[in-house]
Amino acid sequence: MIQRINSDLVAGALGVVVCAVFWFNRGTLSPLSGAFPDAVLVVMLAVSGALLVKGVISADICPAFPDGNAGRVMAMIAGLGLWWLGIRYVGFLVTSTTMFFVIALSLAAAVETLSLRRALFFAAVAIVIVGGFYLVFTQILYIRPFRTPLP
């Protein structure tokens, strides 16, 4: 069953939450630094309020996951999170090669039957592509890699 949401209500609620987050982190700003964000927050609150009213009166209902497979989206988001943690605490080259391999393999598994030979090919592609970009960025463009235990 396709889950549906009231997008006006969700957008309005989100606007109120964002306003609250910024307002409670405002602290004591001088008029010079506070005038513009305050004005934007007021407008944002008004727009959010209007969206909440519209959500009750004539709601715009849309599917929660219009692209199809929600599980794959969640898995990809988790993968992105792990990727960042790996880059931060393990090493760019090692993490990115691993993540490239895992993502490529999982996406391919949805459309074809994978063998060990095919998996090895995927691993080789991951090493070549990630290694190639890493070398271009560090050796040609002189981007200094982030300090981590592994490369």
Partner: peptide
Amino acid sequence: HYFLIPTILIVTILGTYALRNNV
């Protein structure tokens, strides 16, 4: 697509990091 998606991700992650050398 299974090679394109992670390749785009690699370029975007490296490109973003390269801006200010900031994870």
